[in-house]
Amino acid sequence: MAVECEKFHSYVYNSEGHLLKFSATSWRAIRKREKNLMRIAFCFLAIFLLAPAGESAQTASPAADAVCVGGKASAPVKIEVFSDYQCPSCRDFYLGTMRSVLTKYADAGKVCVIYREFPLNIHPHAPEAARYAHAALQLGLRQWSQVTDALFMAQDRWAQDGKVEAAVASALTKEEMSRLREALKDPAIDATIARDIELGRQKQVTATPTFFITANGKTEKAVGVVQYAILSRYLDSLLAR
């Protein structure tokens, strides 16, 4: 390709041998376009240089007194969920996602799951359900799991009629239920729930479910229902590091 420059115009032979005429304005437009492309390339370069391999994170980690309802405290990843038993999203999150996390990650020792009570003011029966769940946790992890399953699965019913105890009783034996009633008298239950709520406020929890994932000394906050398929991708990426 040959280029001959005159005072105001340039002539370029294209691959087919045709002579193309370019005015000075055309050259300016081409140069401007090249400059713009350079700017875009610079933006991309800046992004790559500035983006570190790590991730932005808070440094807070779950409180030391936290009880893992699944997995061990020494697990490399901790999931701390602030949940409300009367909240439909919390039900979906627990039944659709967290139950699978408990069986596939917590039981394998990869993740410690902590459930915190965060009953919202708009749910009148949530505090009572939280008390039953905490009392069940005093009986054991199996009982907590059974009561939590029952409370979430029958949520529509007891949220309407307020018969929380009936839903809890359906999940436990008579002997366990009588022990649970005894455990409910313990004032420590209310204190623990109050502490969970206060902790949630400190962590700026304003909605449920809100969960914090801690791994490698970093904590990330997430709000809302997340599918198991999506959460497991994140957990796998954390465990692979």
Binding site: E55, Q227, I230, L231, Y234
Partner: peptide, 11 residues
Amino acid sequence: RNPFLFEMAVD
């Protein structure tokens, strides 16, 4: 910077 967290946000 954190594509997995963004996946959870979209979800």
